[in-house]
């Protein structure tokens, strides 16, 4: 069974249909990229997979490992091993990054029947992982994303990814707003987490990221449908031609 299997997924928000029949399967160990123009439904797909209650799923199925994902509450999806790196990470004034991560990590460990980390173990882990994604330690003590720069927010997402070690990581434009050095660090962070048992779904506008995180498959999302899938060369092709070609093909 695939790690993630999406069949004919339809979803809408406030009565507007955004996803119009998505089919996608990701095997363990694979990295897939989704590309597509603004408003095509990339973030919608990511949020529907993570369980955002503002979207209504109107058709189709999603299986994660052997679980029916759509039946699970968002926190249980996370505990099962789904992670969403947000395109726009949310600021949470008053809740420190460290405290937040400890609550998250222990909730996940508890769900999996693992013992919760004590203060010392946790501190050690958090320091080590912050270092691995070059996250400034001062940001650990600050409220979650509060007043972080765009780049710091994205790095914080990757840091959380490294802490929570999910089986499926959906990264929604984690590359946008990053300078080349930051991009490289983020890509290194992701690459070091790639493994036999883990899958990635990387959403991006630019081929740039995909030269660091080499995908196994690339999909083009247009008007809520995957209009083309291919290997990593598809990303390069898109960089040259843009989406207009597919738009015509889809119309």
């Amino acid at each position: 069974m695939a790690l993630l299997e999406i069949r004919n997924l339809h979803a809408r928000i406030q009565g507007v249909e955004i996803l119009k029949g998505i089919d996608l399967a990701i095997e363990r160990g694979e990295t897939h990229a989704i590309m597509g123009p603004n408003g095509s439904g990339k973030s919608t797909l990511a949020k529907v997979l993570a369980g955002d209650p503002s979207y209504e799923v109107t058709g189709g199925e999603v299986y994660f490992q052997d679980r029916n994902l759509l039946e699970l509450a968002p926190e249980d999806r996370a505990r099962e091993g789904v992670f969403l790196g947000f395109q726009y990470p949310v600021e949470i004034p008053g809740v420190s990054n460290t405290y937040f991560l400890k609550a998250a990590l222990n909730a996940i460990r508890k769900y999996r029947g693992e013992k919760e980390l004590d203060a010392m173990e946790f501190l050690q882990l958090i320091k080590e992982r912050a270092k691995s994604v070059k996250l400034d330690e001062a940001l650990l003590r600050r409220p979650v994303n509060d007043g972080f720069s765009g780049g710091e927010k994205k790095r914080n997402e990757i840091f959380q990814l490294a802490m929570l070690e999910p089986y499926l990581a959906i990264l929604d434009e984690t590359d946008s707003g990053l300078d080349i050095d930051a991009l490289r660090t983020v890509a290194e962070g992701v690459n070091s987490l790639r493994s036999e048992e883990r899958g990635f779904l990387v959403i991006t506008h630019y081929q740039r990221l995909l030269s660091y995180i080499i995908p196994d498959k690339v999909h083009v999302l247009l008007h809520g449908r995957i209009v083309k899938s291919g290997g990593k060369e598809l990303a390069e092709e898109l960089e040259g031609s843009g989406y207009a070609l597919f738009d015509e093909a889809a119309a």
């Binding site: 993570a50 369980g51 955002d52 209650p53 503002s54 509450a73 968002p74 926190e75 999806r77 996370a78 505990r79 992670f83 969403l84 947000f86 990470p89 949310v90 600021e91 949470i92 004034p93 008053g94 809740v95 937040f100 991560l101 609550a103 998250a104 990590l105 909730a107 996940i108 769900y111 409220p143 959380q160 929570l164």
Partner: peptide, 22 residues
Amino acid sequence: ALFYLNTRGISLDEAQCMLTLA
């Protein structure tokens, strides 16, 4: 903010508690 916390494995009750305390 509640959804963000949920996607990190934190339950709705816990998330509400966290934000209220904040």
